[in-house]
Amino acid sequence: MKETPIKKKYEAIVIGASAGGLAALTAILPNLSKFLALPVIVVQHLSPDSDDFLATHFNRICSLCVKEAEDKEPIMDNTIYFAPANYHLMVEQDKTIALSTAERVQYSRPAIDVLFETAADAYADRLIGIILTGSNSDGTKGIQRIRELKGLVIAQSPESAQVNIMPLSAINQAGVDKILDLKEIAPYINQITEKET
């Protein structure tokens, strides 16, 4: 198999993380290119009463603009969005954010499956999904949908994950296109999304 990644005009990246996610995201988000010309939408499992500390924290250490996602907000390039605590984050067909207080999915709200499935429907084969460390199987169903619609799925290698259950579930149940060590993820993303000149 050829190792050169297929260059395709991707339109969005979605990332799901649970236990150990803060460290994993810290290894990825600040290392994304400031020229990354697409949006990054993140679900990190949180306790329901958390405030917007994740967005505030990452905004301080990232070159891209980081914010908490708001309902009906148009999704912009060069921006990283975090799902607010206690709300599901969905992507609408018209590339806007929709929040929801519906039941927990996989014991979680926000749930990675909800983000991944709706983003897959909105971006189809122009979507990159990344599943990181975590101690449950949230995200696996969402990855199935991304793959069904021919998007690209990357899993953090179980060996490099603080908790390997979530990436293992994705790899075994849904299958992924690429398994990368934590430190390889940001460079890989920068490479495959680099604008041709």
């Binding site: 969905m90 609408e92 067909q93 929709a98 929801s100 519906a102 499935e117 429907d121």
Partner: peptide
Amino acid sequence: YASAHTKRR
């Protein structure tokens, strides 16, 4: 209604 929501339900 928000279509992503309706579709999920």
